[in-house]
Each structure stands twice: as C-alpha cells, then as structure tokens.
C-alpha cells in the first residue's frame, strides 16, 4: 500500500519538475536547452511512479482476491509507526542547531543536543553530562582550532572564551 502512495508522490514530483523545467530559458543556437535533462528526469519520475503505483495496486488485488480478510491483513506490509515519532529526533536536533547555534554558540548547542539525546535513550545522567561536555569541547576544538572552521561562537559567549578557542 505504501508503494501506491510513494508512486503517486513520484508522479506529482515528476509533473512539478517538468513544469518548472519549462520555465528555463532556451537559446536559439542550441538544439537542446537547459530544460532537456530535468524534463527527462520528470518524465522518468512520472513513468516510474505510475509503474510503482500500478504494481502496488496489482499486487494488492492479487493478494486480496483468493484469501480471507484475516490472511490478507497478515500479508499487509508492516506499519512503521510503531516506535512513534522518535526517528524525527535527529532532524529536530539539526533544526535546533541551525537556529540556536547563532546565540548559544556551536559548543553549547552541541552539548545540549547530545545530552538530551543521550538522556532520551536512558543514559545515566552524569555519564550523559560528562560525555556530551567532553565531546562537544573536543569537536569544537578540532574543527575551529585545527581545521580553522569558523563555527559560531554565539552571542552568549562572544569574546569570553579562553584564547585557545
């Protein structure tokens, strides 16, 4: 069943790609403009998506037809929603980093993210605290001092960090 929706999503994405590609400018001297490849990809999305959806429908009909409803239910694909929305934790943490690092600085933001994620997976609090602080410090030091990446220091700590950072 999931394949049906994924297939339809690809068809919609394909149409959107083709429509967007048609707006690209064309040069009269070129037979094939910048819209050619995106349009081919869009057409491929439509074709592949439609095939996927059709296959899903076909399989569903074949599964449902000869069997009782309980057997068919057992054959249905397993649901992914079992563990709730926990898989969204990493993306949420990244969004938090993007918005908070400017104020808190990369080091504190990373420490907060790591501490919260460790606690959520039932790590002993003091282990989580020590581990997240040490690792955040290490990552910040390696990237900003050794690789010279300008990781945000944050408004909160601006200029107050020891010279080594």
């Amino acid at each position: 069943m999931r394949d049906l929706f994924t297939g339809l999503a690809f068809v919609i994405a394909g149409i959107a790609t083709i429509v967007t590609a048609q707006q690209f400018p064309t040069l009269p001297s070129l037979q094939y403009g910048p819209s050619l490849f995106p349009s081919i990809v869009g057409a491929g999305f439509c074709l592949g998506g439609a095939l996927l959806a059709a296959n899903a429908l076909w399989n569903r009909r074949r599964v449902l037809a000869p069997q009782t409803s309980t057997e068919a239910a057992a054959l249905r694909e397993p649901s992914t929603g079992k563990s709730g929305l926990a898989m969204l934790l990493p993306p949420l943490a990244i969004v938090f980093y993007i918005f908070a690092s400017g104020y808190l600085g990369a080091m504190i933001t990373m420490a907060v993210i790591m501490f919260v994620l460790m606690i959520l997976r039932k790590t002993v609090p003091w282990v989580a605290l020590v581990a997240s602080l040490i690792v955040a410090l290490a990552i910040y030091f390696i990237f900003s001092h050794y690789l010279l990446i300008p990781l945000p220091q944050g408004v909160l700590l601006e200029g107050r960090l020891p010279w080594i950072f």
Binding site: I94, M114, L117, A131, L151
Partner: peptide
Amino acid sequence: RILMPVILCFCVV
C-alpha cells in the same frame, strides 16, 4: 545511545 548523538554532531559540523 552515547555514540549516535556524537555522530549526529559530527554530521552537522
């Protein structure tokens, strides 16, 4: 549970 948050920070940086 300790390793994965560390990897996440490495990903971002």
